[in-house]
Design a protein around this nucleic acid. Structure first.
Length: 191
DNA sequence: ATGAAGATGAAT
DNA sequence: TTCATCTTCATC
């Protein structure tokens, strides 16, 4: 079987609420390590919880640029988290990548994480950035060129929808998406 | 200049 | 449930 096509930048040039569920099942690799995206969250700029909600700053500047770029930010002074910028330039909306099913580069990911339990390797936004070696150096890089490799899913998976995690503002919306039943989620979805 | 909060994770 | 750890951004 040939590899599915790489995601082009145009894939991200539409509503963040369309892109987010379609990323479930896609494959994300960084320098050859990574796996299948099993959990994401959508952040539209009109959402009070979005980093871009109160306007452009140094940190969120890439969100205001064209779609198809990485937005990496520091979380709680400790972790890195990665988003994919979506929608037309100026919209400032993005999808947070929350969990992967590890498939490629398991050895290097286990070493970076100091773990052997593959279910704990990429089951959270901070964890997967540590496993894939994502840091601020990846901020503002295009997603359709190395070190990134993004491939479309082969077929539509069974997608679970739920309220977002770790958010107090506007958490009531069903803007978290996941691969139903996957053991690699950061948290299970309620049935 | 200062400080409170934060799209988390790991340990208790 | 607590805490590590520190950048960001609003406010003073």
């Amino acid at each position: 079987m040939p590899n599915p096509p790489r995601l082009r930048r145009s894939f991200f040039n539409r509503s963040v609420h369309e892109v987010a569920p379609e990323l479930i099942g896609a494959t994300l690799l960084v320098d050859g390590a990574g796996g299948v995206i099993v959990e994401v969250e959508a952040y539209h700029h009109t959402d009070p919880a979005a980093h871009s909600y109160t306007g452009r700053t140094l940190r969120n500047a890439v969100m205001f640029g064209p779609p198809g770029y990485a937005y990496v930010y520091r979380s709680y002074g400790i972790h890195w988290c990665i988003n994919f910028v979506c929608e037309q330039e100026g919209s400032a909306s993005a999808v947070l990548i929350r969990a992967l099913q590890p498939t490629e580069g398991l050895a290097v990911m286990r070493r970076r994480r100091g773990l052997h339990d593959d279910r704990a390797l990429c089951s959270g936004p901070g964890k997967l950035c540590q496993a894939l070696g994502i840091t601020i150096r990846h901020n503002e890089l295009p997603l359709d060129r190395p070190p990134f490799e993004l491939r479309a899913r082969r077929e539509a998976p069974d997608i679970a929808r739920g309220v977002r995690i770790g958010i107090t503002k506007a958490a009531e919306k069903l803007w978290r998406y996941g691969l139903r039943g996957s053991p690699f989620l950061s948290k299970p979805f309620k049935p």
